[in-house]
Nucleic acid binder design. Structure first.
Lengths: 130, 130, 130, 130
DNA sequence: GTGGTCTAGACCACT
DNA sequence: GTGGTCTAGACCACC
């Protein structure tokens, strides 16, 4: 169900949270729809249930899902969570761009990179820096 | 000399390295100029010399500075290091943008944020996301 | 697992890195195979974990291994690291040969020595020079 | 009089010793000829006299020169020193070649590099490894 | 348990 | 004084 980078980068629970966030944001998971259970997901991905649980907690904290005791977790009908997630992601891009700018990278250079991201079907990880 | 976030985020030695990279890239530190010594920097920032040393080693590996035994460390006249640093920074922006795209952020939204970064005199950290 | 010269010569972390590089390059450690953990290696060799860690970091930077958080370090399937290691080794031979040339050693004399190295099963260290 | 790499690599006193060894080996400095005084050399090269002294001590140890009290140092008429220096240099090439062999470098690859060294007018330092 | 970061303090070689 | 290496031992996040 999820594509996970076991290697470095971000922690696995964040990757799971991000995947679910994407599914919710693009409408693949609708409001009040039930999510796969923690155990089920963990088993399927060969992960420790704790790891998956942490992802779910994160999403709950962000208002993207809500748990119902002994029923499971469900997609929150509110837009709050999705908006927060997007705003956060945009902010992170801006921070990285600001850091790049500080060391002399031009807006043009960044635009070129962004076009690569948005025009084609690139994977998460850009190429190795020269 | 440096603004450091002692708390989480990125490791201190990377923050030092980044600060120096910025100073070199923007020309505040010129080629073959002497950097403050490892011990001096450590003392000034209240850090362990090892931590600063690690930052300097990183910069050396990236070709931004070169050490001269018993003399100190100096800004490398070569372009290699700066190019590496820029390529890395651009790559990081692209990675964050790809993550944002995955959760439904549009190119337009990112462009707006980037314009804010490049048009005005904002500090590194944007405000809390809405 | 490693033969280390604790006394002078090259730093211990480089010796570890070199040993592992050799094992990887000659195929004794295959792609995606797990390496002994930092702590384990340190204990076995009577070294400080930091020293071993440094060796592993070096290998990671060179693309020979990749760490997986809380799982361990693994041999990188990429060729980049091995190529880097070979290029570096060749370069070092060239540097030493250039130094020898400067003090009057002929190409012939070096060729003789190299044939000894490549034809037979000699150990690393040649005899005392005459 | 000498070309010194203040940067890393080998210690300066060894570089001085090597330069003098080369001059002696190629006959530019003849047997029993007087070498420039320690102070003079130090002043000329902007070095600490201690550093130059160390180089001279090294050469004396190796039998390349001999000191005469309050007269200065002179080139030894014996071949011993030169032979030792050459043997040592050859041995070092062999050691590096053995290390390279261990990680999969072929004799051919080394030969190519050596031809570059011996055919043309390259400087000490080979190119950056890829 | 793993890898990663950091501090404290030591020792060395070089100038 | 400088950079570089090493040890000892701590803390953290992650799984």
């Amino acid at each position: 169900m999820f594509r996970l980078n076991l290697r470095g980068g971000s922690p696995i629970y964040e990757q799971i949270a991000e995947s679910l966030t994407a599914l919710i944001a693009e409408g693949a998971l609708k409001a009040d729809e039930k999510l796969p259970s923690v155990r089920e997901t963990a088993k399927e991905c060969g992960l420790n249930p704790n790891t998956v649980q942490k992802a779910y907690s994160l999403l709950e904290e962000r208002g993207l899902i809500y748990p119902v005791m002994s029923k499971g977790s469900f997609v929150s009908p509110s837009e709050r969570g999705v908006n927060y997630a997007k705003a956060k992601a945009i902010n992170e891009v801006a921070e990285k761009a600001a850091a790049a700018k500080r060391i002399g990278v031009t807006k043009n250079e960044i635009d070129v990179a962004l076009n690569e991201v948005f025009d084609s079907r690139r994977s998460t990880k850009g190429g190795e820096p020269a």
